[in-house]
Simulated assay, not measured.
Amino acid sequence: MLIVTILALFYFGMYIDRLDFSFGNIDEIFFEKLAVFLNSIAILHFVNLVLLLRNKYKYLNSELETSAHTPCYVTSMKYSDTNSMPPIENSTFETKTSITERRETCISSRRKYFRNLRIIYSQLHDVALLINSTYGFPLLCATNWVLISIVSAANYAVDLKGTDHLYVLEAVLWSIFSLTLMTIMAVSCSLAVNECSRSPLIVQKIMLRDDIDSEVMKELEKMFTQFQAMKIGFSACGLYRIDLSLLCGIIGATLSYIVIVPQL
């Protein structure tokens, strides 16, 4: 779909410039617009990885939410409702011992469960850092290319001042294409960051329950501290963050340019 869109825009521009739809210029299109294609592929590949990471955080949060609605001592509660009766001479001692053991087992399993979630969260944080380090420079190039493409197309459309509708349409289509890539990238990053930010809030809701054991509470406190310290974010080589604020800044700068330049 991306290749078809780029080729359609290329050929539309060639038709406007040369009034020729001939395939004899396919080599020129390939070499002149290779950077556009590579930048677009890099952006979409980055977006795919970020959305996969967001799905993993979403799964982890769903596990936490399920735990928040599960009774802490459900195992011992089931045992207390059983109809089986132990021998009379040892009934009191064996019942108390069994309930205590089941309670301790339940607490231990819940502690291990939350610890496993902490390990998963730590691994997801490492994946986010790896994505940032791998795509830092490509994101810097891609975002600058998108900004230059949008501003150049807007400047081109403003300079024409409606004298040729086909040229104006070409500039508008390129602006929409570049802005769409930037929007997809910014929205995907924001979705992943927001999903990660939900985890500490869910842990706080679990900690507010009255049936939480002290040992489990300690594990939850460690989990909350870890989640607060391991928040994720995506940036272009650390120079600026890739999020909705960047998208709004690009749109605002473009609109300001379109309004101010014609008045000069």
Rank of each mutant, 00 (worst) to 15 (best):
Q123C: 12
L179C: 00
L255M: 04
A35T: 13
S76Q: 08
A236L: 10
D27M: 06
D159Q: 10
T92Y: 05
S245N: 13
T163S: 14
T183L: 14
V50Q: 08
I242H: 01
N144K: 15
R110I: 10
Y121P: 10
V127I: 15
P87G: 05
L124P: 04
L244S: 10
D20P: 01
E219S: 11
V158S: 04
K33Y: 06
Y79D: 10
S175A: 00
H165K: 12
N144L: 15
A42T: 14
E94T: 10
A153E: 05
M14D: 14
I150P: 03
F37E: 12
A186D: 02
L2C: 05
S76K: 10
S256Y: 00
C72P: 07
Y156S: 01
L34R: 11
I150G: 03
A253Q: 05
T143H: 06
A35R: 15
L129Q: 15
L51P: 04
L9D: 03
T97G: 03
N116S: 13
L53G: 00
I184L: 12
F93R: 04
L220F: 11
S214V: 15
S108M: 14
F234T: 03
F227A: 11
T97D: 10
E32T: 09
S91K: 02
V158Y: 03
Y11L: 09
Y79P: 12
L129N: 15
E195Y: 07
T225K: 14
I26V: 02
V151Q: 13
M207T: 10
T254L: 02
D159S: 11
L51Y: 01
E32L: 11
G136Q: 01
L179S: 01
S80K: 14
I16P: 09
I107R: 02
I176V: 00
G136R: 05
V74S: 07
F137T: 07
A186F: 01
I88R: 07
M223V: 12
Y257I: 00
D243F: 04
I206S: 05
I107H: 02
A154W: 02
R110A: 08
L173T: 00
S67N: 14
L60F: 09
E170S: 01
E101R: 02
N90I: 08
S98N: 03
S133A: 14
F46I: 15
L140D: 04
T143E: 13
V4R: 11
A142R: 03
A229Q: 13
L166K: 11
F227V: 08
E104L: 02
V261A: 03
I150T: 04
T105W: 07
N90S: 08
D213Y: 13
R110H: 11
V172I: 01
